[in-house]
């Protein structure tokens, strides 16, 4: 018997006022899958992944994450947020806390770990993203690439089953993109379920097992990367690919 999908969206619709951002989204993600979502600006990519941890509320349809359905029940929302880590384009580290405090905050306050244990955990993840020496600094003292790696470590500290990335490298200078992608590649190798909005097509090729193309609030195409890049089915995908691959 196949395992049930860890993320399941069925006929999800969302509007901002009269603006229809997500249209009949159906999506199933199996455990351990690595999905890259791309598409033109404003197509609803961020909105889609933000619905999965309820940073945005959907109005129709059903979203089930790890067997928990997203409703208005605060307890369920908090349960899902413990399972799902998120990394933002603008890092969103807490500037008034040190790197170590950024990492231990949720383990201590949400998981109620003892401080010492939380700090050991945090140091383990800082090692994993290769910046243990920055633990005592404040976010403002780090480079963009380092900040984003701290943000990834912060999400990992909650030991999530799913990681959501919203354009994690778009705010970075070119020489820092690689250090963040390396961390993500390593994470993918560890079997983490990942949903990643990105335009790093090299990353999509090597890491993703599915690429999703969104346009105007719809999932236009979903296929494995080899197929997606060599034989896109729809004209819109072809146009998009020709635009982003030729610059």
């Amino acid at each position: 018997m196949a395992e049930p999908p860890i993320i399941q969206l069925a006929a999800v619709n969302k509007w901002y006022g009269q603006f229809h951002v997500l249209k009949d989204i159906d999506l199933e993600v199996a455990k351990g899958e690595r999905i890259v979502i791309c598409g033109p600006s404003g197509s609803g990519k961020s909105t889609l992944i933000r619905c999965i941890n309820r940073l945005e509320e959907h109005q129709q349809g059903k979203i089930v994450v790890d067997g928990i359905e997203l409703t208005n029940d605060v307890k369920q929302i908090e349960a899902i947020r413990r399972e799902v880590g998120m990394v933002f384009q603008s890092f969103n580290l807490f500037p008034h806390l040190t790197v170590l405090e950024n990492l231990t905050l949720a383990p201590i306050w949400v998981k109620k770990l003892p401080k010492q244990e939380a700090e050991e955990l945090a140091m383990a993840y800082l090692n994993r993203v290769q910046i243990p020496e920055q633990a005592a600094k404040y976010p403002g003292q780090l480079s963009g690439g380092q900040q984003q790696r701290v943000a990834i470590a912060r999400a990992l500290c909650m030991n999530p089953k799913i990681m959501l990335f919203d354009e994690p490298t778009s705010a970075l200078d070119p020489e820092m993109i690689k250090e963040v992608l390396d961390v993500m590649v390593e994470l993918a190798g560890s079997g983490m379920t990942m949903l990643c909005v990105t335009h790093e097509m090299g990353f999509a090729r090597t890491v993703a097992n599915q690429v999703i193309f969104m346009d105007k609030g719809e999932i236009v195409e979903r296929s494995p990367p080899e197929e997606f890049f060599s034989r896109p089915k729809s004209e819109r995908t072809k146009l998009f690919l020709s635009q982003i691959l030729h610059h």
């Binding site: 941890n53 580290l93 949400v110």
Partner: peptide, 21 residues
Amino acid sequence: PKGQYEAASAIGLGYWQSMRK
């Protein structure tokens, strides 16, 4: 910034926790 609220929610802090911390 809104991002601070979102990051706090995303790591699982509740309303009062994210306000306080």
